[in-house]
Nucleic acid binder design. Structure first.
Lengths: 243, 243
DNA sequence: GCAAAAGTGTTAGTCTTACACCCATGA
DNA sequence: TCATGGGTGTAAGACTAACACTTTTGC
């Protein structure tokens, strides 16, 4: 572990990211299991350098976890309860373990800084899950993609943050045509429909869905996809980013 | 002016409020002219006490400016460019004037604190303009309601913040039925329509507008309003907050 | 030819928009 | 009785949802 210089970062302000991916007809988020404290789950997050914008900070944090360069990112809410971190039951255990782990880095000063009050800016990210290579960070035991229907209990208010992110995602999904960020570059209409079904937790009828999507004028129809199955081969589509 | 103890507040984090009101068929915002620096216009804002939530802080700041207790408030975006305040052309003049004005309060330490990098949480508020008694603060020369079509140039990125607030307001206006916060308790359909026309900067046809509003099932029709004009007396309506 | 799944067409229903009309009010 | 502006009715059009149907594919 490198040094951790609290002077580099804005105090009392953090970023937490809800990273959405899509796989096996399920909407998933990337969460981390902590190496410390009660080994509880938490959202990837980090601090803001004094020399970078909050958007840059969010990008950097995401890049550290996913090793992706360009990521679709959206700020969705600030969480600023006065007891957010301070009153957490984990605080004490965490502080002790961090100090024991590396007393040179985790001095009392650093631990006080880390466990002080934090206002947290919530971002959600949409990624092509195939392209992500999760990077286990210094504080993580492991990273895991978990279905939004199977989210474990998480640290602090991270469960609440996740639910708010999901709500914001649904709100923006149609309006901003952001769904394509969750898919590979090329996909079938069925796959796109299944993504929508996973996000909204409901079914759509195939013909009306197709009509709606094609009417948006953002899809380019490519050649057919012959899978070897004994049925009509579906067309492949690509998102037309120029529009 | 009272003391200003920077230790009470979270550093590098501020709140700016875009306070919307409605009067004379115009959507307006409450802005302040600074006593210091280049006497430029700015949005009402303030800092967050270490002992209060960000929502409480926003409420408090709004209460200080409007003397209203319960205000409709919505967080809409965080502004976190790295040079937000620091690179402002006003910084130097402001610092000098503040120090000259009251060197006991505005020590170098305080001024450094105030002119350091700030991440700003944007809130917008909706108020019944009739009920507001604007309170000129320590930093204000005056407060003024200005039409959204007549916003002067403002400090830092406050013009951008205002535009983003307006966009968020329009986005939420229909969905969350928040318009009623801008009107008196009792109003005519015409008045409600004119409010919508001011917000969206377009006209609506009276019958379709009425139909749409009544279909929402949130309006209670009261007695007629006899104005003395030689035409049919319009009904008065009230927003049904129970629903 | 047959089953499976993709793709298309048609209709009914709902919501939106535009136009026309009637009604209460006070001079 | 008339001008004014408030309130209502209706029909056309657009959009949505539900149903049925045809086409392609490999066995």
């Amino acid at each position: 572990m490198k040094d951790f210089d609290i002077e580099q970062y804005l105090p009392h302000l953090s970023i937490d990211c809800v990273i959405f991916g899509y796989q096996g007809k399920e909407l998933k988020i990337l969460i981390a299991k902590s190496r410390f404290g009660k080994r509880s789950w938490n959202l990837p997050g980090g601090y803001i350098r004094k020399t970078e914008s909050i958007e840059k900070a969010a990008s950097r944090i995401l890049n550290e976890k996913t090793s992706l360069k360009k990521i679709y990112l959206e700020q969705f809410k600030v969480f600023g309860d006065k007891d957010r971190i301070v009153k957490s039951s984990l605080k004490k255990t965490l502080a002790q373990e961090l100090h024991k782990f590396n007393p040179k880095i985790f001095t009392t000063k650093v631990i006080d800084w880390m466990t002080s009050r934090f206002v947290c800016i919530g971002y959600y990210a949409l990624v092509d899950i195939q392209k992500v290579q999760p990077q286990v960070g210094d504080f993580d035991e492991l990273l895991e993609w978990r279905s939004i229907n199977d989210i474990p209990q998480m640290m602090h208010d991270h469960t609440e943050i996740t639910l708010e992110a999901l709500e914001a995602l649904r709100q923006n999904f149609d309006q901003k045509l952001i769904g394509f960020n969750l898919l590979p570059d090329i996909f079938t209409m069925k796959e796109l429909q299944e993504l929508y079904e996973a996000v909204f937790e409901r079914t759509f009828s195939n013909n009306n869905f197709q009509k709606k999507m094609l009417d948006l004028n953002v899809l380019v129809r490519l050649e057919k996809k012959y899978t070897g199955a004994q049925n009509k081969a579906p067309y492949l589509y690509q998102f037309n980013r120029k529009k």
